[in-house]
Design a protein around this nucleic acid. Structure first.
Lengths: 342, 342
DNA sequence: CTGAAAGCGCTAACAG
DNA sequence: CTGTTAGCGCTTTCAG
């Protein structure tokens, strides 16, 4: 039989209310009795029951996290950001893999709510009406991380996929390329797929280049897609001279696909990726890529959640973190056109 | 105010006990009243409070997982195995990053115990006396995954690091190499570091090759270590002709370090890694490596934990999963010496 | 500064 | 098949 607060009270010769006070660091306890209680706790090996506390206080100091796949480097890094900030604020995390299946996402969210989590961080590709419906029945705050809801009602932390897609394409265009191909993510995915692709189109459009369907390969974000994309691009008469892949894994697949066919990167083909997972530095040539602050997205989302949980005022419920391009060796060093003469 | 079981009871015109029964799928309820209750639940939008249930039933259907770093591909894969089996058995997971800091590991374990988890899966590099002490105060089962305690008392699921280290070295030796170097993990780590290294020594010893200190580089499991190791090995007069790295990341670092110096793999140097994380296939040449069944270690550990939680009989509390070598292109295809003539 | 007492929402005997 | 009745272990007024 585990020792309870009542046992400690008896041992220390005080009431359970007093024990509760010292356990919770309430200052209204005379030092001498505090010491007595602490002694009893130590002696009995008392360990507070957080479930009972949760029931009585209606706070569990636990938050729920719904994640597509913890084995994905991208999401794992996000999760790390969440966990670090959570532990800083003394929260624990219930982690649930959704496999990106909507009905599972909804089910998990409900389970989390049943477990009385104090808040939820939700990661997923797409936010549907069904999601909104479940989310609104929640009595605790929910923030989206690495995604955003179409209606803009929910708090969220993400980057601008559109801008990022635009910038990556623009980066290639500014190097003089006229034939820029793209390996997209699944287009059913509104942000990672569609928005990045729209950014690509915008950039092309802006310089008056017509979108060519054969320059677009619809990938699934994984390595093999990159290799497959190369197959398609190299079969064309007017092969592209630069490729923008919507994920680093695909970009590395592209590089290897190219190298397997005897082409050199960046000499024969320039390649830019997206995300900046660690893999980007573990390939030759090292990958130039759009840096997404994955860890920060998680960390900021968690921080935002704490604000909601503490009823603090928040200025912007939708936060877009900055992205940038990290130039490495899969693209050529740009010639500096603006040498000032000294 | 959230709706409680009591509200449902009133709405349905039954007692809360009956509501509890239908919620918990107890068969002893007349279909007609079950329907009534279900209707009330639906109408009121009732959502059972798992915390209250946990307090009353002394089971939380939640388990705790202590992990060194969820952003590590190796542990993330393990975590995935755990989560999949856990969700199959209707358990949720409280995930805690320990950063491999012992005092944090102990603290987290205690927190998990306070939260009344039904069991714990512990991942870490080393199990000390302090660990054992905390573990024994737990009234719920604890199983180790990807590690093993020195005394062999705790249930655990892992591979034989010694055998694996031996096999990898032997693999190289059998290809005729006399100068085989090793990039180890931290030797303070008894399993990943020391045991694999001991396997290496054993294999050398067996064929009468003297261990050379300069052929051993003490890495930290990460990519950069591999590159640094190459520096050391290539500075020697009698350079090694094959390298065994105790992690895939280091092995890929080795490959790139070699390539950066103009050497070819496997022509000039053969390389074998350890783990078989996805990266092993995303490098050129693809990495030959010791396959560790990461997902399975997690899955089996979780399965084992369910047995303990249900008081089922378990035959072996220490399970060693098989490892094997996956030959890819970082080692030469072996000549077949045993061609039978037909 | 400390104690008494009333729940938190649910499960689990125990009756009936 | 269904209702009654105790708690589960702790927090939280409210008195004193």
């Amino acid at each position: 039989m585990p020792v309870t607060i009542y046992d400690v009270a008896r041992e220390a010769g005080v009431s359970m209310a007093t024990v509760s006070r010292v356990v919770n660091g309430n200052p209204n306890v005379k030092p001498s009795t505090r010491k007595k209680v602490l002694g009893a706790i130590e002696q009995l090996g008392y360990r507070p029951n957080a479930v009972a506390r949760g029931l009585a206080s209606k706070r569990t100091t636990t938050i729920g996290v719904v994640i597509p796949d913890i084995a994905s480097p991208f999401f794992a890094e996000l999760a790390r950001g969440i966990d670090d900030i959570a532990s800083m604020y003394k929260y624990n995390i219930i982690l649930c893999d959704s496999d990106e299946r909507i009905e599972r996402e909804l089910h998990l969210t409900n389970t989390l709510l049943e477990k009385q989590v104090d808040g939820i961080i939700f990661m997923g590709r797409e936010i549907t009406e069904n999601h909104m419906q479940v989310f609104t029945t929640a009595s605790v705050p929910i923030v989206l991380a690495g995604t955003k809801d179409p209606t803009g009602q929910l708090p969220s932390v993400d980057i601008s996929h559109y801008e990022a897609g635009y910038d990556a394409t623009r980066f290639l265009l500014e190097r003089g390329h006229k034939r820029v191909a793209m390996v997209t993510g699944p287009l059913v995915d509104p942000l990672w797929g569609m928005r990045r692709f729209e950014g690509y189109k915008k950039a092309l459009d802006e310089v008056g280049i017509m979108l060519k369907d054969s320059y677009v390969y619809n990938g699934d974000t994984h390595y093999e897609s990159g290799i497959a994309a190369v197959e398609q691009f190299l079969s064309l008469v007017d092969q592209p001279t630069a490729i923008f892949a919507a994920s680093d894994e695909m970009a590395v697949g592209v590089i290897h696909g190219l190298q397997d066919r005897g082409l050199r990167v960046p000499e024969d083909m320039e390649v830019i990726g997206f995300d900046n997972i660690r893999l980007a530095e573990m390939v030759r040539p090292r990958l130039t890529t759009v840096v997404q602050p994955m860890y920060d997205i998680g960390a900021v989302a968690m921080r935002l959640l704490t604000k909601y949980m503490n009823n603090e005022k928040v200025d912007h419920h939708i936060v877009l973190l900055p992205h940038r391009i990290e130039e490495r060796q899969s693209t050529r060093a740009e010639v500096d056109h603006n040498d000032d003469i000294e």
